[in-house]
Write a protein that binds this DNA or RNA. Sequence first.
DNA 1: GGGGCTGCTATACACGGGTATAGTCTGCTT
DNA 2: AAGCAGACTATACCCGTGTATAGCAGCCCC
Lengths: 207, 207
Amino acid sequence: MTTVPDPEDLTARARIRDAAMRHIGEHGFERATIRDIAESAGVSLGLVRHHFGSKQALREACDEHLMKTIRRLSDLAASDPYGAGLNPAAVLGPYQPYLARALTEGWAAPLFDEMVDLGEGWIAEADRSRPDPPDVDARSRSTMIAAMALSATVLRRHVERGMGVDLTSPEGQVKLMRVIVDLYSHPLLSLEEAAEARKALDRGATA
Amino acid sequence: MTTVPDPEDLTARARIRDAAMRHIGEHGFERATIRDIAESAGVSLGLVRHHFGSKQALREACDEHLMKTIRRLSDLAASDPYGAGLNPAAVLGPYQPYLARALTEGWAAPLFDEMVDLGEGWIAEADRSRPDPPDVDARSRSTMIAAMALSATVLRRHVERGMGVDLTSPEGQVKLMRVIVDLYSHPLLSLEEAAEARKALDRGATA
DNA sequence: GGGGCTGCTATACACGGGTATAGTCTGCTT
DNA sequence: AAGCAGACTATACCCGTGTATAGCAGCCCC
């Protein structure tokens, strides 16, 4: 998107980082090998170590780059209220697979927390015009909303199969947004059903 | 939950399988070693191979066991409408980490698809009492709902951090359910906002 | 009671892959 | 011109881990 610069123009260090993000995104951290990454970047094995020191450090550099990129893109998307807000994944483009790995393989906690922070303020504001009092704190709700928003990214393969589209394609993105807009504008539970469910929980029916 | 049988009672084969599910769930398939699994199960390295043949085959046996367990539990939970339906994860107990790995590391597609199937019928029924016509097909919506329902399982660590609870504990489960019930009974988008968002999508504002 | 099966252990093999080291080339500074 | 630093390569090391083989004990069955 937006005319990616020719790989030849990038420094070797950047090429290695990008290759690492692709490989880790596709295969996961363990299965991604430094040798494959080096080959993908068109450099020798030793150069990877020269620039990053270790595989762990390479991963951390990728994380840092991801954070920086996401922050930049989310600032950019803040001006487009109905575009990116609902589907943060849409903005990430090629970084999506890496993000999914980062989230599910344990790291990337700060990124998730940042999303929760953002949503928390958003929710607190929405609560002011809400008729009934919320049953749970805004932060917990924001956490679940963040998790749900990321579910399409994290479970991308399954969602693509279920919806029959390629989520990296423009059509796929539009389809996904339509689904999300529809779901978000129609409650899955009526207020009565919700009240009943809460009662069941109050009775301690967890077992 | 429900008085787990004493590990000593289980056959070695079952002990190995259970240990594998724990280890893979905790560390992922790659980082889980056969040696550690064998030690956890209190058997020798060779016995694992004797019973399962290869690491891949061991994983497949775990998948099969997971499927069987989930089917059994979901049948059981079908009679408890407000209990498990909203939060399938609640039912899985110790199998949750393995399920998360299975979903994010590529396998377990049939399981996800089964959830989508189940939800699709559920949604088709709900559509009949819906005032406005749905914007997208039931299957796509069911897919996203399934993904969202699994997000707490897949992103468990992050959700726990955000909500400040242990999701394996009864209190954590109740808290999670309360959040979900609240979110599902209150649309995040008003119908006007949704209409506006759809318009924006119609105009092709994907970029 | 010997043959053969199953459950199980111990040990060895092979290799992938992260790490480490030595060395070359280029360009810049003094 | 000397020399130094940084980018880069080639090669070797070595440990972890999946896989394979050989062997042993108990048990059933004719």
